[in-house]
Every structure is written in structure tokens, then in C-alpha cells.
Nucleic acid binder design. Structure first.
Length: 272
DNA sequence: CACTCTACCTGTGCGC
DNA sequence: TGCGCACAGGTAGAGT
């Protein structure tokens, strides 16, 4: 499941592609599965056909592509969320299409931007302004101001795991990195934020930033059969009944907030 | 407000 | 070998 570090890797791949996506004209829009588009499909096709890629941004797990009309200056944004299994490819247009391609943008210079998504959870939407989406989100996980984060954390009465998963609190953390962050901070997923002492709060803030930054630098997580390129080593996620890398106690898995939650019962202390 | 449940999806991996 | 089924999870929206 792509989270902030994986989405950031996608963005950097596109930005660093041999033939840049910036400046490309959209020659044809091909929607291969109707519900991949939120909103009116005809409008989506007509808005993008003939328009030019100008810019790519990311906030949390959301990607935003800015286009302008070929002769004008009016901008429109394409929002893309990969959800569980979405993947984005910039490929030569003659490359064979994958089985689960949901959306394909044919570009000039013989390129195609393809969105492939077996589970079909991913969504694409046109917005006039990215604030339509980011207005509901907290600060991006890579741009956290530690003092402000500390103050916001200390006020929260919620359990740490659901809090970290709340995109309105911090944008970009998903199930994998929530577990990894709590392990690094040595905090139990059931602990309440407002019961932490100042040292623990600081530890948590540091862990959020460190885990996300390290995962970005390693191009995402390295999990069997889930991701390809990433080298970020998971300590607890998906490792139930395996020894904790710190104390060798067996990693425990429980369902919390409806999510599989992995933690070390010895290293991670609970403050309810 | 805080929390839980459900729908949306389909590939995977298990038990029988 | 193959069938059926539970399971995985991000988000929105409804319900408690």
C-alpha cells in the first residue's frame, strides 16, 4: 500500500524521467474503467485533451498534476490517489499495456502515462485548486514543524495508532509506517497521546519525521510481494510471531481501529 | 467528539 | 487439483 514515501518515490521517478513529463501535451485520454474517475468523465476527457503538463506536487498520499490549456494560462489539477495497489508508469506508448490499466494518457514524444490498479481502489479527480483536497488534510509528513506537532499531539486524547492514521492530523502515514513509527518511538499503539510525558512526546515527533525521511531516502518500504524498489527495512509490520530486532521477544499482531497492528510487547510500553 | 462499522475491490493463500 | 472463503487496507460516510 503506497504511503507517503512510496508516493514521493513515484513523484521523483516522474520528475527525473529521461524525457521529462513536464511540457508534454496530452494527445488522447483513455479511461479503461469508468469508476476510476470521480466526477464527470466527459468533462475529464475534454479538460485534459490537448492540455500541457506543467507541474507535479504531492501532499500526503495525494499526487497533483497541473495542466494548462495549450494556448492559454488557465490551470486545472488532476488529483491521483493510488490507494492500495495503484501504480503509475511513464512508458513508451508502444509498450504493452498491463492487465489492470485503468487510465492512460497518450502524450507527445511517444510517451504514455498509465495508471494500473488491480484492486481498483485508486481514484483520479479533476480539481480547480489543490486546496479542495488538502483543506481536509493535516500538514504533510515531510514538512512537519516539530514544536507545533508537539503541541498538537499533547492535546489529543486518542490512541496513537488511529491518531497516526488520521490524514487530518498528519498527511501521509498509513498502516505500515504507523506501526514502524510507534516501534521506533517505543510506544504502544493503544497509548493515549495526552498521557505521554514530554520525553515520550518528543520521541514520537522525532520518530515520525525520521521514519518518513529515512523511508523516502530508501525509496519506500521493502515488503515481500508488495513493493519493488524500496529498501526501507520494516521492523514490525507483517512480522507477527517473528523476533523483535531489538529484544528478540515475539512481535504481536492485534486488530486495532480495524487495522492489523504489529508491535513488540516488551519494547513498546502502554500508557492508557 | 471519539470511535466503530461498512462499502468499495480483487489477488492471494489458506483449509478441506 | 480445485473449490470456497476469509483477508488485506485508505477513505468516505453512516451510525453509536
Amino acid at each position: 500500500m503506497p504511503e507517503l514515501p512510496e508516493v514521493e518515490s513515484v513523484l521523483r521517478c516522474l520528475r527525473d524521467a529521461p524525457i521529462s513529463i513536464i511540457g508534454r501535451t496530452v494527445l488522447k485520454v483513455n479511461i479503461l474503467r469508468e469508476n476510476v474517475i470521480t466526477g464527470d468523465q466527459q468533462q475529464f476527457v475534454s479538460a485534459l485533451t490537448g492540455s500541457v503538463f506543467k507541474e507535479i506536487r504531492r501532499h500526503g498520499k495525494y499526487l497533483f498534476f497541473r495542466f494548462t490549456e495549450s494556448c492559454g494560462t488557465k490551470s486545472v489539477w488532476m488529483m491521483l490517489h493510488l490507494r492500495m495497489t495503484g501504480k503509475l508508469f511513464l512508458v513508451p506508448e508502444n509498450e504493452a499495456q498491463l492487465k489492470h490499466t485503468r487510465l492512460s494518457l497518450l502524450l507527445d514524444k511517444g510517451l504514455a502515462l498509465r495508471f494500473d490498479d488491480p484492486r481498483a481502489f485508486g481514484r483520479v479527480q479533476l480539481v480547480q485548486s489543490i486546496a479542495e483536497i488538502t483543506g481536509r488534510l493535516g500538514p504533510d509528513g515531510l514538512c512537519l514543524e516539530q514544536t507545533e506537532l508537539l503541541q498538537r499531539l499533547a492535546k489529543q486524547k486518542r490512541q496513537l495508532k488511529p491518531l497516526l492514521l488520521d490524514q487530518g492530523f498528519v498527511a501521509g502515514i498509513g498502516n505500515i509506517y504507523a506501526d514502524e513509527i510507534l516501534f521506533r518511538a517505543k510506544l504502544h499503539p493503544c497509548s493515549r497521546a495526552d498521557r505521554l510525558d514530554s520525553q515520550e512526546l518528543t520521541l514520537l515527533c522525532t520518530a515520525i519525521t525520521e521514519v518518513l525521511q529515512q523511508a523516502v531516502s530508501l525509496k519506500g518500504a521493502n515488503i515481500d510481494g508488495v513493493f519493488e524498489a524500496g529498501m526501507f527495512p520494516v521492523a514490525v509490520y507483517g512480522r507477527a510471531k517473528q523476533p523483535c530486532p531489538v529484544c528478540s521477544a515475539l512481535i504481536q499482531r492485534e486488530k486495532l481501529a480495524g487495522r492489523g497492528t504489529h508491535f513488540c510487547p516488551v519494547c513498546q510500553i502502554c500508557k492508557i
